[in-house]
């Protein structure tokens, strides 16, 4: 069976559309709300869900995501809890799910055991921020893809090596820095996407710093998928007390997701 991520991009490409990827931190404000949020995000037009599996020391993350991880851990989020949460989402949704995390929680759970149980729960991809390809000894499997990151500082020969071991999509980190909303999109972005395309036919997702519909539209001109994280996470924090918080977040995301659809120039 083809992975849900691959299926998603195949369908979008057939419609000449780009993917909208929403990031939220699992367990913030709690795991039950995460299930509601996931379904609300899907309804709002999210194509792929990126779920943060919280870690105590998220050194690639800016302050918004750090605080979300801290809240999630304080609210009792565990690795098993997050996998159970994915299982609950899977009962009612086929949205592709990528877990975004760091090495240590997976390592302590047991690397192979984690892959087995995450797959069984319905996770489609893994994005491990501090696991470069050099340290990743696991072979790509069809059921749980290891998504590779490329940064603005990654030289061409390294891009080639990374693409050779990539699956699902390439995650291009659109700026040098940690996660978090930014006022503008790096001007070199389109050129970098073109450079990466020389080495791979995989879809290219762009993330880190994208926070509004205008930026989403701009990035959608060159990339195949756009990731918005901190802006949504911040909104969840602000709306946390509202009974209908998941619907409110859905309304916020709807405009962002719509910016990836309709008429876009394919690269």
């Amino acid at each position: 069976m083809q992975n849900r991520i691959d299926q998603c991009f195949t369908a979008l490409r057939a419609r000449n559309e780009k993917a909208f990827i929403a990031y939220i931190c699992a367990g913030d404000p709690n795991l039950a709300r995460t299930v509601d949020l996931a379904l609300s995000l899907e309804k709002a037009g999210t194509d792929i869900l990126e779920l943060g599996l919280p870690f105590s020391d998220p050194l690639a993350d800016g302050i918004v995501n750090q605080l979300a991880a801290q809240r999630a851990l304080e609210a009792g989020a565990t690795v098993q809890g997050v996998l159970d949460c994915v299982g609950q989402i899977r009962r009612v949704s086929q949205i592709p799910i990528v877990l975004y995390t760091y090495m240590n929680p997976i390592f302590q759970f047991g690397f192979e055991r984690f892959h087995r149980e995450a797959s069984a729960a319905g996770v489609d991809g893994l994005l491990i921020l501090d696991l470069p390809p050099e340290e990743d000894l696991a072979a790509q499997t069809e059921t749980l893809l290891h998504i590779r990151l490329i940064a603005p500082t990654t030289p061409a020969e390294r891009i080639e090596a990374i693409c050779a071991k990539a699956a699902g999509f390439i995650y291009y980190v659109s700026r040098e820095g940690v996660t978090g909303a930014q006022a503008s999109v790096a001007s070199s972005l389109a050129e970098r996407v073109v450079e990466i395309r020389r080495f791979t036919n995989l879809p290219i997702a762009v993330g880190f710093g994208i926070s509004n519909a205008e930026q989403v539209r701009e990035v959608a001109r060159s990339a195949d998928a756009i990731v918005v994280g901190s802006a949504i996470v911040q909104r969840i924090f602000e709306e946390r007390a509202a009974q209908d918080m998941p619907e409110r977040i859905g309304a916020f995301v709807k405009a962002l997701a719509a910016a990836t659809k309709g008429k876009t120039n394919s690269a």
Partner: peptide, 20 residues
């Protein structure tokens, strides 16, 4: 060459730092 002391060490960092 990749900084391993047997099973220890290595380079577990975000991609942005790898080239540096």
């Amino acid at each position: 060459v990749h900084g391993h002391f047997g099973p220890y060490g290595g380079m577990f960092v975000p991609e942005t730092l790898m080239s540096a």
